[in-house]
Design a protein around this nucleic acid. Structure first.
Lengths: 267, 267
DNA sequence: CATTACAATGTGAATCATTCACATCTTGTA
DNA sequence: TACAAGATGTGAATGATTCACATTGTAATG
């Protein structure tokens, strides 16, 4: 009972990043604030959170903010990203070999990856670290130069690493997506790497939060028809839905707040 | 004046990891606690620290604890490691190509690397992320599988990356060091990687905190004579000093508390 | 050089979270 | 069942934090 409540609290805090004690009191009205305080104390000992005046913050989230401070606000669309990740994690089954892209959406997914027998390749050092918390997941990084804006590795060496490696499912993110240009990013060598992944993976899952739809960036790495699955939040414009149907791409709608149930199974 | 004080505060907090407000009041008796509070507020906005009841904590330090929670307590010998790193950073000159090993000592060094034109290769994702905060430093990671205990990449692919790459100065850490076995670690493939680095680097700097001296681990990756520089805290036993003299290895003593002055120049 | 504006700093009262010690309730075990 | 150990609740005491306001320092402007 105690352990379960602590886990609930931890999940909640990890998802929100920052909470006030008063929130937690509303969330769990059956226990006193003193109990919640003691739970937070424990979670702090476990290294999951730091307690602040009036509440607590997730350490993982703090590191994320710190790391992405140079690019954009992580908080933007975080709900959307969390719910997209919640849908994506349904495509993870034990024993598979996965690829995880860089980016905050992928980071949200990394946090939700179950501790099962998996092999996961990623090009993002921060995601590799997050994944390494799982005892049963073997984590590998593509080498290469680190792009300080996207926190992504790329370059010829990163690609060389991929030869002789099999990927069952690749979870890819894009900076922008439109019908004309397909999935695009702003960096040449990152696009090269993504193209290679698209070619090597057996199943391609594209993660795309709504703010990126109907926009374009310089380099295309995939077309809609390359994606078996497209997970997005909010409603897709009709023209896009039609195109997806033609391309035989399964579109999964993730609605913020779906994290818990999410059992409609669009797989 | 304000900016200078904030920087002092930040350095102090980053070094200590966790401070109480009362400490800061002693450190800077010329300003009121209210000013210090406002400074902490600013540093929190900058994403450097989190404020806690009664003080503040360094975010970088928190992430370190989180990451190394599986192995050992980071706090152990942290003073020693910081002072070793302070000595090591004197061997960093602009325009060079460096290698930084994995480990908390190397992480301490990473935090002190100046934001100069440098190329730095590392096998530790967490260190790569730390280094990426510097605008002028180009950071590269060796690829490979991630060892969750040492947070170090290794494996054949990691080594393949190194071909065609030149390293001016390599900063290496060891799990143990003795006259008989030399510098040793507990993992085979990590030893392989380190051996390669030792071979490729023009100058080899070994970082070693006192607790590791006169111990042995299974795999040797270098002998005393391979190291041009050996930086250690506390006094080295006479037999080791003699051996170092014979091996033409410069021994640098880092004494905890040296971070500020440290201008005796043993280079 | 005086003046104004603005940011940085100090002060003390009011507020609020937190801690602490102690009482009570569960839970697991012999 | 009875006991021990851990979990939880309560309210007073403590201590940190905030807030509004006064003051000082600093830089730009006429």
């Amino acid at each position: 009972m105690t352990a379960g409540r602590r886990q609930t609290l931890n999940l909640y805090i990890q998802a929100k990043g920052e909470v006030r004690l008063s929130e937690l009191e509303e969330l769990l009205p059956d226990v006193s604030s003193m109990t919640l305080r003691r739970d937070l104390e424990q979670l702090e000992r476990d290294g999951e959170i730091v307690r602040t005046r009036g509440g607590a913050k997730s350490i993982a989230h703090l590191s994320m903010i710190r790391e992405a401070a140079y690019t954009q606000r992580v908080g933007e669309n975080l709900d959307a990203k969390m719910s997209i990740a919640a849908k994506a994690v349904q495509f993870v089954t034990p024993g598979r070999s996965l690829y995880l892209d860089a980016g905050t959406t992928a980071m949200c997914l990394a946090q939700q990856i179950p501790d099962e027998s998996l092999f996961i390749l990623t090009s993002a050092p921060n995601i590799a670290l997050e994944l390494s918390k799982n005892r049963n997941v073997r984590v590998a990084l593509t080498g290469g130069q680190l792009n300080r804006d996207t926190l992504s590795l790329s370059g010829g060496e990163a690609m060389a690493y991929m030869e002789g490696l099999n990927i069952d499912v690749a979870f890819l993110t894009a900076s922008a997506f439109s019908l004309e240009s397909g999935f695009t990013v702003g960096d040449r060598s990152e696009a090269d790497l993504k193209r290679l992944i698209v070619r090597k993976a057996r199943t391609r899952v594209l993660l795309l939060d709504g703010s990126k739809i109907d926009r374009g960036m310089p380099y295309t790495f995939a077309r809609l028809s390359d994606a078996e699955i497209l997970i997005t939040d909010g409603p897709l414009p009709p023209s896009y839905l039609k195109a997806a149907k033609q391309a035989k791409t399964t579109v999964v709608q993730a609605n913020a707040g779906d994290e818990e149930k999410g059992k409609e199974g669009t797989a």
